[in-house]
Amino acid sequence: MSKHYSKQNLKEIAGGDEDFMAVVAQTFLDEIPPDLEALEEAIDNDNKELAYQFAHKMKPNFEMFGVDLIKDAKAIEDWTKTSKNKAAVSENIKKMVTTLKAVFRELKDDFSL
């Protein structure tokens, strides 16, 4: 089964140090779930400024972990600069939630966290 993140990306960043990789994975698990929840809430409340901040904050993590959500985060950032309603990004946030929940499970399994 293919992963929703790239352990290879993480390995390169950590220089192959498994302990450091586990620390980085734990940090991701500590920070991203509340950020995701806050992003969902900001979109629900049409708080575009806050939605932009959380989408923007998450992008480097997606890049570091090879999670294919940068386009979705960018779409949310772009939406915050328009007058479109939240339906315009409903598919993006749905994909982010679904994908990230899978990443959280995979990281916990892969690093016994």
Rank of each mutant, 00 (worst) to 15 (best):
E37Q: 14
S83L: 15
Q26G: 15
F62P: 00
A38S: 15
A38R: 15
D46K: 15
D44A: 15
D30M: 14
A42T: 08
E106W: 01
K48W: 04
V103E: 01
M1E: 10
L29P: 04
H4G: 05
T82N: 07
P34R: 11
T98K: 07
M21N: 04
A75Y: 07
M21V: 03
L10G: 01
K48P: 01
E31G: 10
I43D: 07
D110K: 08
K94L: 08
Q53H: 10
T99F: 02
L113Y: 12
F62Y: 07
G66A: 08
L107R: 03
K108I: 01
N9L: 09
K81M: 11
V24I: 13
K11R: 13
A88L: 00
N92E: 15
Q53N: 15
V23Y: 12
E40D: 12
F20E: 06
A51H: 08
N9R: 13
E91N: 14
D44C: 10
N61Q: 10
F20A: 08
D110W: 08
A14V: 04
Y5E: 07
L36T: 11
A75K: 14
M1S: 13
A22E: 06
A14R: 06
K101S: 10
A75N: 15
Y52W: 09
H4F: 11
Y5V: 06
I70P: 03
K59E: 06
Y52D: 09
V24D: 00
S2C: 07
E77C: 08
K3D: 09
A55W: 00
L113V: 13
E12L: 13
D110S: 07
K101R: 12
I32Q: 03
